[in-house]
Nucleic acid binder design. Structure first.
Lengths: 244, 244
DNA sequence: CGCTTCCTTGAGTAAATTCAAGACTTGTGG
DNA sequence: CCACAAGTCTTGAATTTACTCAAGGAAGCG
């Protein structure tokens, strides 16, 4: 773990203030959270939590990207979630989790010790309601991903994955300076997320490059040259498309 | 919808009393629920809810099995959940759902109108806490299924599916008279649940029959002749196995 | 008993995987 | 600032798994 470079940002200045688990808290509630929060930082590649570990902390991703990974007995792995800024790690009332949480970029977390946080939830509807809402959002996302994993072709999987990245980075303004987007995962990690092999991911990504749908600038920076074509390749409904 | 054949079972006599959303309610709370509940019945094949429909009711499955289905533009479908007795339909704070809910057997639901129920949640921690717990259980199940869909072989998928059925029916005592289990889904529906085609499902099921792992009595009744072999075929950890 | 629906089985095909070799990035140290 | 090493990525060829297409057979319902 790195030394935190956000030492103690005020909640009111926090970049995820309006979307995280605390988004509906009033000034008093925020003051209470302010007292019990701590920041933790992780370097790209670090393990944030290991499957089965006792869950001492819960918290929000403030910066960076983390992934939730499940590994089978024989080493096959499936990523079951990607966490962007404002996403929550850990669950109320559970003492452990059934997947590993990994930092895929440098990550800063806003953490609360589980005990005090759970006591606060019990008396703070603004938090418990938001937590429920976030859990249901995660459930919806998991089910959408089940369609991807079970029924989509390699090409559709890639297109859906890229579209999801665009949507999340647009939201977070991780998007950086120009219109360029960041590809926070390696080919191998993408493969684990969408249920393919890294070779197939590479082939499909290059096919979309050749077709002029994507444009790459180095390994991990790219932009979408043809958003409509990208959406067309997802296999999703024409209506339900991306709204910016 | 059928005429309900449970007209007004008392909550205290309800078969799912100890596992459903109301499981932690005290006598007073139960009395309140008793007043606002209504039973609805559906025949096998009926649509319980359609994607995008305004969600007027929420409720628990009392008897029967329902499925959650997503359909792509071109007709490909992926089942994203199976609901057994005690499972909850609908979500607090959401006015619609993004999948169809179908009755695959005859189904009886214990329903509450969404408005009154949500008002009750707000003042009844015994319910809101249980709802949160159930949402997190569903999320865990969805993520386990993502591993199945993304990384398991046809044989592992079938074995995992059958093991899940055994576990749920053991729990519900749907298991009926003898040790026989019910296969509530057709080959086609199973295929939609585990991301295969019906032919592949049929082949794998028959392979397990020939190997003496499963024994069939007609189309939809079967028993597991070799539970250890079944679990061995799931690809899951030797430890995390079924506990009866 | 006959019809409909669901299931089985086979043969050929297609999509993605595996195996393998080589090329590009990126970061580090000289 | 360049060269090198390590890690990533690309591409091709062969293989495999599951899919598609097709026909026939069993179950279950009326």
């Amino acid at each position: 773990m790195l030394a935190p470079d956000i030492i103690r940002t005020k909640c009111s200045d926090c970049p995820i203030r309006h979307r995280a688990v605390c988004s509906r808290c009033d000034t008093d509630e925020l003051a209470t959270l302010e007292r019990i929060k701590t920041y933790k930082s992780f370097e790209a590649g670090d393990t944030i939590l290991l499957r089965g570990d006792p869950l001492e902390y819960v918290g929000s991703v403030v910066r960076g990207v983390a992934t939730l990974n499940k590994t089978m007995e024989d080493g096959r792995t499936q990523m079951v979630g990607m966490l962007f800024p404002s996403d929550f790690i850990g669950r109320p009332g559970r003492s452990e989790i059934d997947y590993d949480v990994m930092a895929v970029t440098n990550v800063t977390l806003c953490c609360f010790r589980r005990g005090p946080f759970e006591r606060m939830i019990a008396t703070t509807p603004h938090i418990s309601e938001r937590l429920m809402e976030m859990a249901l959002d995660e459930l919806d996302a998991a089910r959408d991903w089940m369609v991807l994993l079970g029924r989509k072709t390699a090409r559709e999987k890639i297109a859906t994955f890229v579209e999801m990245l665009v949507r999340r980075q647009h939201m977070d303004k991780v998007a950086a300076s120009n219109g360029t987007l960041v590809l926070p995962l390696t080919r191998d990690e993408i493969a684990d997320y969408i249920g393919l092999t890294l070779e197939t991911v590479s082939r499909q990504l290059n096919a979309m490059k050749k077709e002029g749908i994507l444009r790459f600038a180095g390994r991990s920076r790219f932009e979408v040259a043809d958003l409509a074509a990208l959406h067309g390749a997802t296999g999703d409904d024409a209506d339900g498309g991306p709204i910016y």
